[in-house]
């Protein structure tokens, strides 16, 4: 029972997360081929599950994986009941409120009731409550930057890393809400039943992070 199962997100965090893993002790044992979703190796203390980035915290919450790598944006949106153990400092970006160039927060508030497009409706709801803004939330699956341009929404709440997509769509950051990066999370029970293996993993990972 000392093997630990780790949920690894595909998508924007995958490459950096893999690079961290392979630099860890035992990391070189694993062979990552393109199509496999479960990666195991003889003698490896890990079993890796490749999952959708939005799902890795869910795997961990229900105990299908002991550990997981997940973006803070997903944790804020899903509010999973898990342990957040380490900041992996990968996939860094910022969750922002943005709107068309030249629109300020005051402008938005003057409009009275506004619409905000986002892929993070739950997080946005909390953000609006805390900042005292009143707005309708429009949930979109992607291309959120389009919404203000065609009048679907007054502003967006989304992740920004370089700001290039925003600029190309004539948008501007109004407020930086919270910095985002990849996190190492653990299941509440695994942390007890596989305490030593998890502690070894966390220390190994912290070692790699300090390199």
């Amino acid at each position: 029972m000392n093997q630990i199962t780790i949920a690894l997100p595909t998508g924007r965090l995958k490459e950096e997360a893999l690079s961290l893993l392979t630099r860890m002790p035992h990391g070189s044992l694993l062979q990552f081929t393109s199509r496999q979703l479960v990666i195991e190796a003889k003698d490896s203390p890990w079993r890796i599950l490749l999952v959708h980035p939005k799902d890795s915290a869910t795997y961990v919450e229900f105990g299908a994986a002991d550990l997981g790598i997940v973006g803070k944006d997903i944790l804020l949106e899903r509010e999973n009941e898990i342990y957040e153990l380490a900041d992996l400092k990968i996939g860094r970006c910022v969750m922002v409120l943005a709107s068309l160039k030249g629109v300020s927060k005051e402008n938005l508030l003057e409009r009275g009731h506004i619409r905000i497009a986002t892929k993070y409706p739950n997080f946005t709801r909390h953000y609006l409550q805390e900042s005292g803004m009143s707005a309708d939330i429009i949930f979109l699956y992607g291309s959120v930057e389009l919404a203000p341009n065609i009048g679907l929404a007054d502003a967006i709440v989304d992740l920004v890393s370089t700001g290039k997509t925003l600029r190309e769509n004539r948008l501007e950051v109004i407020e930086e809400i919270v910095p985002i990066s990849g996190r190492l999370v653990a299941n509440r029970i695994s942390l007890k039943t596989k305490a030593e293996a998890i502690q070894r993993f966390v220390e190994g990972m912290k070692g790699v992070l300090q390199q």
Binding site: M1, V60, E61, F62, G63, A64, N187, R188, I189, S190, K192, T193, K194
Partner: peptide, 9 residues
């Protein structure tokens, strides 16, 4: 109290 077969207490 917990079991290794379930992710919740």
């Amino acid at each position: 109290g917990f079991s290794p077969h379930l992710g919740y207490p």
